[in-house]
Every structure is written in structure tokens, then in C-alpha cells.
Nucleic acid binder design. Sequence first.
RNA 1: GCCCUCUUAGCUCAGUGGUAGAGCACUUCCAUGGUAAGGAAGGGGUCAUCGGUUCAAAUCCGAUAGAGGGCUCCA
Length: 665
Amino acid sequence: MSAPVENRIAITLPDGSSRELETGATGLDLARSIGEGLARAAVAVQVNGGDTQDLRLPLADGDAVRIITSRDEEALGVLRHSAAHVLAEAVVARYPGTKVTIGPAIEAGFYYDFDFPEGTVINDEALAQLEKDMKHLVKQGRKWDRWEVTRDEALEHFRSAGEQYKVELIEGLPADEPITFYRQGEFTDLCRGPHVQDAKGMKAIKLTSTAGAYWRGDSTREQLTRIYGTAFFSKEDLATHLANLERAKLNDHRLLGTKLDLFSFDPVSPGSPFWHPRGLNIWNAITEMWREEHGRRGYQEVKTPILYKPELWKKSGHWDAYKDGMFFTELDEDGHQFGLKPMNCPAHATLIKTRRLSYRDLPVRMNEQGLVHRFEASGVLHGLMRVRHITQDDAHIFCAPDQVLDEVTSTLAFVRDLMQLFGFDDYTMELSTRPDKAIGDDALWEKAEAALAEALVRNDLPYTLNPGDGAFYGPKIDFHVRDSMGRTWQCGTIQLDYNMAQPERFDITYAGEDNEEHEVVVIHRALLGSMERFIGILLEHYGGEFPLWMAPEQVRVLPVADRHNDYAREVVAALRERRLRAELDDRTESVGRKVRDAGMQRTPIVLVVGDAEAEGRTVTVNRRGDDAKPTISLDELVEQVSTEVAERRLSDHVAQALRADATEA
RNA sequence: GCCCUCUUAGCUCAGUGGUAGAGCACUUCCAUGGUAAGGAAGGGGUCAUCGGUUCAAAUCCGAUAGAGGGCUCCA
């Protein structure tokens, strides 16, 4: 690799190779230097691992550049942001006098907020019409021009157009930030970019819904109309996305919870689920597994109170940030007030303080299904996904600084093993680093961040960096899983904490080999997040089909006629003897009817017993997702089922359901 | 919490000023059945709650509670 000559810059590509370009060359120039085809397919560039950037921006000497094409995930965001501009163009053409505001790409598409003229109604027909308009504009051909303007030019442009929201945005921009305009067709917008070069790739557009939104998210400001939509590079991708949305509606855990008789809610305790017997069976199966897996990994389970005096959180430092989100009791006769804990950390810290720790004790791994309460605003409660009564699968690992790497490494392996057990094969990690207002010295932070990164590498887990998003007391890793409908959920989290053990907090120290006092490092971690939410996620992921080991009802026994009830009861008893969840359906109904009802409840195994079975002490096995109906001996059946449950296999019918749902994202 | 919408039988839902309906579920009876709904009869609701308008309110108005969607993704 030679040093750049004058008027030349050197650019590094992801494969490690280097290219020389003229000074001032843009991302587009770079793509063109590689090939015309790539230049046409390019959507944006990623420079030095940062955000996506417009192809028309000049590159600098030494930049590491990745060219993003429609095949890359980031390209969708660029496409959708451009689609938002096309929507705005369509809207101002059809509804003159509409004021435009902002229109970003979001996770599953884009939106644009408009201030429509008084009395404008955007209903489904209007949405369909706008979608047609957008497609028409794309067909006409749209290219994006980009140029920089001065602040005064920008203000003048939007003031004369009466676009007060844009004026407000410009006025709020830092003085040193360059202001750029983008124009496609008749529509010019203040925009940071990037945008696609032209709309040719915008093969599939769909406007999905409208909603009210406040200007700048401020409920005292103007109420705007938000139009949601999505866009893809291919019609197939859009069709998959829409099918996933449909399936998500059918697999809504709130509907399944009612249909499968798992849990319910009542106005007497908003945001707190009532677990029905069948739902609690799922919970208990998970808990049993969770206990075993923690015990195997050297954790010790504890149980701590839910009521505390506020002094606890004043000590932990949570008070100021959390007190508004907590529940409190009235004052008791001695003038004490108690709060319901919103997190378990201070409780575990209190517990560990009862021990005099030696380096020989470390690490101490303390796990608890900790019941916490958070006063979530009534408008954000959502089934099991957002509750006020939260059972966290929490743990705190108290260790010496030189144990952090090993502990994080094994915790990552733990969370990955668990997610695979549940059939989550697609997951991503996010490493969040030191925020602006962090405590502790730089060297400690660097060491902590390096330890987390090293642990990710050791587990062969790819991750994205989220700079500055760590907690004030330490960096963290978040574990995101992708469900069968392509949505991602943050479940596990691993946080390093150098704050809690400090003398002014809980002062947790251990006697080292040197017989000196040392502060412990605390690792906070949750693997599933909360039991409530995780079961909600599982319900939607599986579409109500549970692997045998978790199924609310594992086996249902159907006698053909009343005279087979006695034998059927024996079958149920034999299964229950092995701690299997078996039920008898002795209603005076036809076999067809009972088979149907068992199917509706997603029972994985249905046994039919009639004359032949009672005679030979056998059962005819209906396995969910399998058309074969073998008749086998009762003893054999009990063994088979016990083994499958003990091994916690992801049952075939569930694997099938997940495959059927799998998206090609 | 704020905006919009909704709340009718255990569940899913019809019912737009004239006195409450369907399907499923439930109970009883008949049928004793071999793989996704056998037949018949029956019970069940102060229409979320409170207040108002009206000769008359599930229906119109207001308040309260709960639920659903949105309010976080920034030119």
C-alpha cells in the first residue's frame, strides 16, 4: 500500500483492499471506480463504521468505506426515507395548503407528519389514493438532487412557502451544521439525507395507517396527522412483510391468552395478569428449567421482600430517577411509608451485606425471580408485554475485577443456550458504551468495555456498537432475538456496575489474598427479561403452539365410548404418576368432536382409547403435526413422553410452525 | 398522563330513541360413538359505572373506570 500522492486520497474497502481516488471524490465516484453496475446499485455508503451517508458526499483520505446496495439491511432505511419524501410530494399535490413537518424511516417502514388544512379527512380511501399517487410519481421517474444552502436561504425558502414547521426546525439547528436540501420532482425538503439516487428501486410501496401525533412529540403543541407506510425493493418482500403483519394479528398473545385459557386481566388491577391454571403450567415449566440451569451454573437462588422503606433507594441512588414510577403505601401508625421495589439490585445488595466476603467466595451468583412493580402510565400498558407487575428473571454476580471477563463470557453462553432452547436462532447483540454523564475513571470504563467486547468475540457473537448508550454506572450488552414473524425483542441484558459497591452506596467489599479490602464488581443480568413479557413473546413466536415440555396440557386422553372411561382414567393416572400434564376428556361427545377440541387447544399429544386399546393396554397416539397414528403400549408411550419432556426438545410440530413462519429477511 | 376509538351473555359479536339477539360455551335428555363440530330442549344479560336529556335510552349528552390504536424512531 503506497502513500497517497498529491491530490489523491486512499480509501479502504471492507475486504481490506485499498483504492486511490482524486481528492474530493464521492462515494458514487468510488463505486464507479469499481464498476458501473455497482454505481447503479449503490444506495449509500457507510464511512468508518458510522451512520449511512449520502453517495454524493466527498470522502476523506484514509476513510474505510462500505458501499451499501439494496442487498444490505441499511439500504431499506434509505429507501423508506426517500419513500417518505415521495409521500410528501403526493400529499402537497393533492392537498394544497398542507404543511409538511418530518418524515423519518422507522423500523418497519416510514412515516410523515402533516398539518392538513382544516377539515381534511384522511380515511382509508384517501390513503389508497395517495398510495396510487406515489406509485404514479415513481413510475414517472424521480431523482434526488442534493445541495447545500445557507441558513438564510433555507429560512427564506420555507418562510415564503409558509412552512412554519420547517422554519422552526432550521432555527433549532446548531449554527455550525451545514444545511442541505433534497429535491425530487416538484418537492423540495429540508433533509439531512441520505436518499437513494432515484426511485427506480422503489418497487413496492404501501401506506398502512394514519394516526394523530404531536409536533415534536409535545402534547401542548399542534396535533398533526401522521401517515404510516412501508417500502421495499421487491414486491415479494412487501408481500412477506404484509403476511407477517397478518400473522402477527392472529398470533396476538392477548387473543391467544383468552382462546387457550392462559391468563386474563381485570380492571381491579390494571396491568397485572391473572394466571389461569393452563397459563401457570407454562410459567412453571419455564421456571423449573430456569432453576435447573442456574443451579448447574453455580447460581444460588434467593427470595427478597417486595416492600421497603424509601431509604433503600436513596442509598442505591435510584430514588430521584425512579420514585415517580413507584407504588407507595400510606404512612403506617409509626409514620413509616413503604414502597414496592421497582428493581431487585438494592435487595440483593442488602442480602450480600450479611456476609463477610473473601476472595475465595467470589464470584457469588445470586438469582431470583424478583417480583417488582412499576407504575407504568395507563396508556402504555399492553397485555403481557407491558405490565405493572413484573417478574424479572434477575441475577447479580458479585465478583472480583479479574473475574469479569469469565463471568460475562459464561453469561453470554447461558443466554444463547436458553434462546436456542426456545427456538430463537436469530439474535443480535448490542454493546452500549460509556455515556456522557458517567461515573468512574476512564481506565475502568475502557477495561469494562474491552471485557464485554472480548466476551462477545469469545462466544463468536457478532454485535453492533451503540456508543454512549450505556448506564451511568457501566457498559452493557443487550440481547435481541428475532421472532418467527421477523420482529425483534430485547430480552437479555448484561450490565457491568462499578457503582453499587462504592463506599457511599452499599460498600460491598471482599478480603483479597493480600488481606486488603477490595470493592466487588457487580454484574446485573436478566436472560428472559420478565416472565410475563417473555411468555407473551413465546406465545406470538410459536403462534400458540408450545413444545411438549412447556405445553399447558401435554396429553389429552379421549375414550371412544363411556365404557372406556375406566381405562382412560388409568392412562391419565399413569402419565400423572410421571409428573406429566394429562387430562381426560370424558364428555359425552363424538370422537371427532373431542379430537377437534383438543386440536383447538393445541394439545401436542392426543391419545384415543377404545375396545382394542383397553384390551391390549395400548394407546393410539395422535401427535400434533404428524398424520401417523401408531398404536403403542401404554408403558412405551409413558417412557417416550417422559424422555422428550426431560430433554426439553423443541417438538417437531413447533419447529414446523416456526419454519412455516420464517421470513427471508 | 395526552389524543382518537371502543365497552351488549363465560367467549366472539349483531342490534342508530319504542322495552335484548346470534354463534360458540354451559346444563339436562337422547344417541355409545374410532379421528377437526351427532340430535333435542333449557338456563344465562339492571347493555362497564354514575348522572343528564326524553313520554320512552343499549342507542343522544356529560363524567368516571377499563380496553384498543397512537403519542419514542427526528430536518
